[in-house]
């Protein structure tokens, strides 16, 4: 699995993610300069659906490894693993460092907080990331992904 040197990116020119209309569910368009950034931005988009990210402190960390048969399935597996961590003890990541990434596996470090209804805002619950209309593809100026969340 290729190691990823964490790059310093200048302040974002693109929006990193944008929700879109899907009747009962929520679709996300995600942009990134490379696949690693797609994975980090997708995680941020997921957390932003669940709560107001700005209130999450960086005081807990989780090492995460996920595997899947291909890159698209890996994106779903990654997001669903984050939902698993949240159900487990309320952990929500504020920042995500993608340490290693190949089409079939991902190693990451997430820093964040334990959800506390007293301090954090509960927005929309997410059941799962789905395979419906799932896509990751390179664009002229970076990468774009689409994923639909079941709410």
């Amino acid at each position: 699995m290729p190691r990823i040197k964490e790059k310093w990116y200048p302040r974002e020119q693109h929006k990193s993610f944008r929700p879109f209309f899907h009747t009962a569910d929520l679709g996300l368009h995600i942009w990134g300069r490379d696949p690693a950034e797609i994975f980090a931005h997708a995680a941020q988009a997921l957390v932003a659906t669940l709560t107001d990210r700005r209130r999450l402190r960086r005081r807990e960390s989780r090492n995460i490894i996920v595997e899947a048969p291909d890159q698209e399935a890996l994106l779903v597996a990654w997001l669903n693993h984050l939902l698993y961590l949240y159900d487990l003890d309320g952990f929500l990541g504020r920042e995500f460092h993608i340490l290693e990434l190949s089409p079939e596996s991902l190693k990451a470090l997430a820093r964040g907080d334990i959800f506390d209804p007293e301090r954090h805002i509960g927005k929309t619950a997410v059941k799962a990331a789905t395979f419906h209309r799932l896509a990751i593809a390179p664009q002229a100026d970076g990468w774009q992904a689409t994923v639909i969340l079941d709410l």
């Binding site: 789905t130 419906h132 209309r133």
Partner: peptide
């Protein structure tokens, strides 16, 4: 019926 993911709702 409405648009679901995979099967319709």
């Amino acid at each position: 019926i409405h648009w679901g993911y995979g099967f319709p709702i």
